[in-house]
Design a protein around this nucleic acid. Structure first.
Length: 425
RNA sequence: GUGGGUAUAGCUCAGCUUGGUAAGAGCGUCAGGUUGUGGCCCUGAAGGCCGCGGGUUCAAGUCCCGCUACUCACCCCA
């Protein structure tokens, strides 16, 4: 026996039973919202071939450059714990020929993703994401639907002040023009921006815009916005999306600095921001990725989607003091005295549960007092007592904990008693 | 990767300034408060090499140094 206790790895958290009400609350809403919008669930593997993410997410991104959990399996194949869902969804779509389903193919997924980062408030190395994607359609109404799902979910969860940040970063037709303009703008003032940005200027100019270094603030403010360079198609797409947002009164801010850190985005990008989870402000982020399927070797296939972090959702629920339904407790605690009674209790328990009555018993050889205490702590509604007297009379004592009323019931009357009392839910 | 903060019981924390009966409290767990009964109250028990390693000293949770972990923040994101 070693003295050292094991600890969960850095940035990786257990979700203990006392957190389950929150999780179940959120997961229930997620299932319902998927149903409501006509999205079907897709379960993906937790790891994929590394190249999928390199190609899908993009070589130049932070995720691929420094945040992936990558290792070789026994055959020497490099695999990676998924750092996000979209690449995997598109892979599955292509692999299984889902394009033969009625278009658009509408999918949601839920599960853990992994990023090797320094943990902090609202950021973990393993966290859970709710992910929604719609493939095979470029209608801006679909962008709107995707955003509506996020909005609807947050509204359902009881969030206040839900607010979108939106932007359009163009397509392969118009983005080159924009990038050129951006570079032309930055080139002369290179000396006035931070070191990171000097690199970005060469590697990934779009990312110049979301630099938070105070040095770069004023250059960013004066930088040309991408929306001024959209081609006709992208412009119409963006304007139409905004019409829908206006029509349905979804609050949004057009944010020229929003470019997002993944390479696959085209046209629409958006986030939902919220306060109260430390320095993190995004509970949801997504956008359109019309070039991704092709980049992964498939036919041109447009797509839109978003991901939302469950841990951040739950932090927000707590921050905004949203009321969570009480955890469900068993209805019945079966207390006993003596070995004969105990044997009978084991039998009765089985019968109660067969009748769908939630029931637990006391274990070991604890006093009646101790069993009652336990039942009380566990917030049990009814305690059934089976002692020597009851054994002799083939009866049980049923105590209603709230109020403390007790009544004697015959063994035959046990099931009917509860079937009458406990709602058939 | 870089910086700040923190490390004493399962949890929340006192004690450290002024080194020497300070290993402590509350909550939780378990047991008991007579003969078969919960919540309030009372009593008791279990549970800590005071994060780890070194140093100073007659003496160190208490002072100094190193390490590690946790945490917050930067970068970026959910």
């Amino acid at each position: 026996m070693t003295k050292r206790l094991f600890q969960s790895p850095k940035g990786i958290k257990d979700i203990l039973p006392d957190q389950q009400p929150h999780w179940q609350f959120v997961e229930k809403k997620i299932h319902r919202i998927g149903q409501l919008y006509g999205y079907e669930k897709l379960e993906l593997p937790v790891f994929e071939e590394t190249a999928l993410f390199q190609r899908g997410v993009g070589e130049g991104t932070d995720i691929v450059e420094k945040e992936m959990y990558t290792f070789k399996d026994k055959s020497g194949t490099s695999v990676t714990l998924r750092p996000e869902f979209t690449a995997g969804v598109v892979r599955a779509y292509l692999q299984h020929g889902l394009s033969n389903l009625p278009s658009p193919v509408k999918i949601w997924s839920l599960g853990p993703v992994f990023r090797y980062e320094r943990p902090q408030a609202g950021r973990f190395r393993q966290h859970s994401q709710f992910n929604v994607e719609a493939l095979g359609e470029q209608d801006p109404a679909l962008d709107f639907e995707i955003m509506s799902i996020a909005y609807h979910l947050f509204e359902d969860l009881g969030f206040r002040k839900i607010h979108f940040q939106i932007n359009s970063i163009g397509c392969p037709m118009c983005r080159p023009n924009y990038l050129r303009a951006l570079i032309d703008y930055y080139q002369p003032i290179q000396a006035k921006i931070c070191r990171e940005c000097q690199k970005r200027l060469k590697k990934n100019p779009l990312r110049l815009l979301d630099c938070k270094n105070p040095l770069c603030r004023s250059p960013i403010e004066k930088a040309p916005p991408s929306v001024h360079f959209l081609c006709k198609e992208c412009e119409i797409h963006f304007e139409t999306l905004k019409t829908y947002l206006d029509r349905l009164k979804r609050p949004y801010t057009q944010n020229h600095r929003l470019v997002r850190g993944l390479d696959y985005y085209t046209k629409t990008v958006f986030e939902v921001w919220v306060e109260g989870i430390g320095a993190q402000n995004a509970v949801c982020g997504g956008g359109r990725y019309d070039g991704l399927a092709e980049a992964l070797g498939g036919p041109p296939t447009p797509g839109v989607g978003f991901a939302s972090g469950l841990e951040r959702i739950i932090l927000t629920l707590k921050e905004q003091k949203v009321e969570i339904p009480e955890p469900v407790r068993p209805n019945v605690y079966f207390a006993f005295q003596g070995d004969d009674a105990k044997n009978k209790v084991v039998e009765f328990l089985s019968i109660l549960r067969k009748h769908n009555i939630e029931a637990i018993m006391g274990f070991g050889s604890r006093s009646l007092k101790s069993q009652l205490r336990e039942a009380n702590r566990r917030n049990i509604q009814f305690v059934i007592i089976l002692g020597e007297n009851e054994m002799a009379q083939k009866k049980v004592l049923i105590k209603t904990m709230e109020g403390g009323v007790q009544e004697s019931v015959s063994w035959d009357g046990l099931i009917p008693f509860f079937e009458k009392r406990i709602g058939s839910s």
